[in-house]
């Protein structure tokens, strides 16, 4: 299923393009849709935890210690919601 790519002959495609596995949005990298980019200023970050729940693309990784890490630019679409939400100016858009 996941082996399907643009060279796959039509006989091997699924009917109607249906996808017979779950959780495959991960395979679709949407980062290149971005026209502006959020920059994480870790020295200003207070780890308040307000930014990552609002990210529509789950592009702000949170580690096991519940601390946010740098952006996952493979998926960040640059919407700027996180920068708006951050009370400490730890995210700038450029």
């Amino acid at each position: 299923m996941t082996e399907i790519n643009s060279k796959t002959p039509m006989e091997k495609l699924t009917e109607g393009g249906n996808i017979y596995t779950a959780g495959n949005a991960r395979e679709f990298k949407t980062g290149d849709w971005r026209s502006v980019k959020p920059i994480y200023l870790s020295e200003k970050c207070k780890q308040c935890g307000l930014c990552f729940p609002v990210c529509p693309d789950n592009a702000i990784p949170v580690n096991k210690e519940q601390k946010r890490e740098d952006f996952d630019y493979d998926y960040c679409k640059g919407c700027g919601v996180c920068a708006k939400v951050c009370p400490f100016g730890a995210i700038i858009m450029e």
Partner: peptide
């Protein structure tokens, strides 16, 4: 679990 009617761009 399946996805029906996903995005189907130029290659497909």
């Amino acid at each position: 679990p399946i996805a029906v009617g996903p995005l189907d761009l130029q290659a497909y």
